[in-house]
Design a protein around this nucleic acid. Structure first.
Lengths: 131, 131
DNA sequence: CGGTATCCGGTTGGATACTG
DNA sequence: CAGTATCCAACCGGATACCG
């Protein structure tokens, strides 16, 4: 389950490994759309067009790519209903649902601290301009 | 501090906003090196060359970019010591330190669940190959 | 030591148009 | 409705070389 150091998987050293667990997960979370889709699906299954409506600006191609990636990672299921017009539902798997916790932690941090971050940016940019 | 819906900042709707807090933070966390650097700095301040040693494969240019971004966001401080040879220390700010919690939550999720993710990937890829 | 300058290939995200 | 196909521009991360 771990790469090598069985007794200290918590150590940051793991993170250096390119094939490291954190890297894999952090990449998904940092994906422009992935964690957004996951959080939209938190409330329940949605069809493709509903997802498009929720994630307003995403193009069908990109949305498909994201959903395929999430499906591949076992985070969402894709259910095709044999009917016309076609209907495809996307739903979080149990595994995907366990990601909601860490994700919302991050969301809460963001909501509480982003003001400070943006203020810091302004200050930094101002300081640069004066040079 | 929030964008508009004061009574329900927790709702996912916020996340749609391109200027949404979560988007800003998720982008940082998802950055290939940023959250890695933050976690390396958790143990204490490090100089540039020490960071390079810890984050083995990163090139100086990229490491500089990451550090500048983190500094701009008020997550790390950059301290230059006027001496020869030059010495520059990077250290987490109080704000940056508060990010360690959510980040390690994510790390723990990764360590516990990445095996399932990778297994799902293999299964998915196998299924594709058979088509 | 702690960077910067220049160049570059690969990936990402998107616009547009078309299909089962 | 739920995608796919094609093309494309921008950005990212990196290799290499050089500088204060």
């Amino acid at each position: 389950m771990d790469t090598k150091a069985a007794g200290r998987v918590d150590f940051v050293g793991d993170v250096m490994d390119p094939a490291c667990p954190s890297r894999v997960v952090f990449a998904r979370v940092g994906d422009k759309w992935a964690s957004l889709v996951i959080q939209v699906l938190a409330e329940g299954p949605l069809r493709f067009s509903e997802l498009r409506a929720h994630v307003q600006v995403v193009t069908p191609k990109v949305l498909t790519q994201v959903l395929r990636a999430l499906e591949r990672d076992g985070l969402v299921t894709r259910t095709v209903f044999a009917q016309v017009p076609p209907r495809v539902d996307y739903e979080l798997t149990p595994l995907g649902r366990t990601l909601l916790g860490p994700l919302s932690e991050l969301r809460h941090w963001a909501e509480h601290n982003v003001a400070a971050m943006l203020a810091a940016r302004d200050a930094y940019d101002d300081a640069q301009d004066r040079l």
